[in-house]
Structures are given as structure tokens and as C-alpha cells.
Simulated assay, not measured.
Amino acid sequence: MFPVCPPPPRFNHAVYMPPPHADVPVRPVWASNFDLESASLRSFAAGARYVAVNVQYPGLVHLPGKDHNALTDEQRYALLKANVDALKPIQVGIAVRDRHGMSCAWEFNLSDFRRLADPHDVNSIAYLAGRGLNVDTLAQHGVDARSIGAMLLSSGLIGPESGLTWITYTGAYHVAYLLKILTGGDPLPPDEGKFVGAVRQFLGEQVYDVARMAADCPALPVGLERIAAHLGFHPPWASPRLAAAAGLRALLVFERLEQGEFGGNVERYKGRLQGM
């Protein structure tokens, strides 16, 4: 996924301390409030600088059969494409930071997935249930993916001309599912090169994966929640720690690393999505 750059020098995570951050409430979005929250997102997006995305999806149904790291780039992309084409996303979390440092997060609950009819990994659904997500409730009261895709396309967040910085964590699958939503459920491009082109077409050049960045900071733990806690970021207010909370954590951690550990020099990480 995108050109791989040489590893950067190691950084001390204690170089920069951010100001105390206020908890950001997560705005859950259902069919009943979709129009209202869509208008809210569009309004906030007018001043956006950073956008983070996290997608909850029903696990993997196509597995590599051997060590994922032993696969070629082409094999890893083929595996990602097989899973994303076969499965339906469950939640989309969008966290936005504006030019004044204010943040807001939306958690879109999708209605398309049917637990008894659609392929999924039972352990992944059990994990989501353990965090309070009832996929059957989403099927009854959520929003269809096409409506969410159309709303995002008209939000001002999508397209290279927006000039925004997009952020994710272990993001290949999150970005791939976002592309699927934006294209109305179309299959992913046939190869990695065309996938990279599609990412640039919809999200622009500035796409960053916090997992790649954090891996070069040896003092940081592994895992987004652990990294956020280590840096002093509290869970979003009233959040069940699902898609929007993960997006918001990724956004806050990115901003901390960009301004602190890397001193604004993060170009080497551009487009390097983990999970492919």
C-alpha cells in the first residue's frame, strides 16, 4: 500500500505534552436522527482539518492459511479484497477536528448486516456484543450504507480538493470499507495499484495510519486503547468504545505524535496503511 519509506529515527514520547483535553461526546446516528446529524456533520465539516475513520465489520471469513507477514503484497491485497467484497460493515465512526482545535465524533449505525443471513465471524460479533452492540437492533433502527455514502460524498470531507488529513489505526480494512460505502457497495478495485488510486481519488494524498507511526515510538504500548491511555487521553464521554471512540482516539494520538514526537515531520508515513 503506497511506497514504503525507510524507517525513521526513534523518538521520545515525553517531548511534547498536549494541553488538557475535554472529553468529546459521541453522537450516535440512527435512522430516526440521520437527517439532523447529517446536517450537523456537514456544518462542522466546513471548518475541518483532520478526519479520522474507524469501521466496525463482522470479522474475516477469508483467512490467509499461513503467516500473514509471509504473504506477498499482492496476496495481502487479494485477501483484503475478498473479505471486504464479501462482508457488510456494521458501524462507521467519523471524528473531525476543526481548524480551531474543536472535535466532534459521529457513530453511524448501519442497517444492512443481517446476523442470520450474512457471512460473518461469530467471535467478532461476540466481541461487539461484549461492548454493548446489538447487531439485530442496528438492522431494525440503523441507516443503510448507501444513504451514509451519499451523505459523506456531499459533506465536503471527500475528494482530493478538500485538502484534509485522513487518519486511521491499522487502517487498510477501515479505508477499504469506507471506499465500499462511498462507491455504493461496488467491489474493491482489482489490484493494489488501482486501490491506491481510489484512496487518493476519494481521500486525497494525506492519509495516515497511527499504528505505523506508533511502531516507531518504542516507549508506546501496542493497541490503540493502550496508546491513548498511555498518553493520557480519556475515553470519549458516554461512548461504548466502538467505531466513533476508536476514530477519536486515532485522531488525538495522531495529533500528539505529529506535533510532539515527529515535530511535524510525518510525510514518511503518508499512505502507509497497516493490514495489507
Score class of each variant (00 low, 15 high):
2 F>G: 07
5 C>D: 09
6 P>H: 03
8 P>V: 02
11 F>E: 15
16 Y>Q: 11
18 P>R: 09
19 P>C: 14
22 A>V: 12
23 D>K: 09
25 P>K: 05
25 P>T: 07
26 V>F: 05
27 R>V: 11
27 R>A: 15
29 V>M: 04
30 W>E: 03
30 W>L: 11
31 A>W: 05
34 F>R: 02
36 L>K: 14
36 L>Y: 08
37 E>D: 08
39 A>Q: 07
43 S>F: 14
46 A>Y: 11
47 G>S: 09
49 R>T: 11
49 R>I: 15
54 N>E: 12
57 Y>I: 04
63 L>I: 09
64 P>C: 04
65 G>H: 05
66 K>H: 15
66 K>I: 11
66 K>R: 10
67 D>W: 05
67 D>L: 13
69 N>S: 15
70 A>N: 08
73 D>N: 12
82 A>H: 02
83 N>W: 00
84 V>E: 00
86 A>T: 06
87 L>N: 00
87 L>A: 01
90 I>T: 03
92 V>C: 02
93 G>V: 02
96 V>T: 04
97 R>Q: 12
102 M>A: 15
102 M>V: 15
103 S>E: 09
103 S>R: 10
105 A>R: 01
111 S>R: 03
112 D>E: 05
114 R>F: 07
114 R>C: 07
114 R>A: 10
118 D>Y: 00
118 D>N: 04
120 H>N: 05
120 H>D: 01
121 D>H: 05
121 D>P: 02
134 N>C: 11
135 V>E: 00
136 D>Y: 03
137 T>C: 09
139 A>M: 15
140 Q>K: 07
140 Q>E: 09
141 H>K: 14
142 G>P: 01
142 G>T: 00
148 I>A: 05
148 I>F: 03
149 G>A: 12
151 M>H: 00
152 L>E: 01
154 S>N: 15
155 S>Y: 02
155 S>E: 03
155 S>D: 04
163 G>L: 12
163 G>K: 03
166 W>R: 06
167 I>L: 10
170 T>H: 15
170 T>F: 14
170 T>K: 10
172 A>S: 07
172 A>H: 01
172 A>D: 07
173 Y>L: 03
174 H>I: 08
179 L>C: 10
180 K>F: 14
183 T>G: 06
185 G>C: 10
187 P>R: 06
189 P>Y: 01
190 P>A: 08
191 D>Y: 11
194 K>T: 13
196 V>R: 06
198 A>H: 08
201 Q>I: 14
205 E>R: 13
206 Q>T: 09
206 Q>R: 14
209 D>V: 06
210 V>Y: 01
217 C>F: 05
219 A>Y: 08
220 L>Y: 02
223 G>F: 07
223 G>S: 14
224 L>M: 11
226 R>V: 08
226 R>G: 15
226 R>M: 08
229 A>P: 07
232 G>W: 08
233 F>Q: 03
236 P>N: 12
237 W>Y: 07
237 W>L: 10
238 A>V: 14
243 A>K: 01
243 A>R: 01
244 A>N: 04
244 A>K: 00
245 A>N: 04
248 L>G: 05
249 R>D: 13
250 A>F: 00
254 F>M: 06
255 E>R: 12
255 E>M: 13
258 E>G: 08
259 Q>K: 10
260 G>F: 13
261 E>I: 13
263 G>K: 06
265 N>K: 09
269 Y>N: 05
272 R>P: 06
273 L>W: 05
274 Q>M: 13
275 G>S: 04
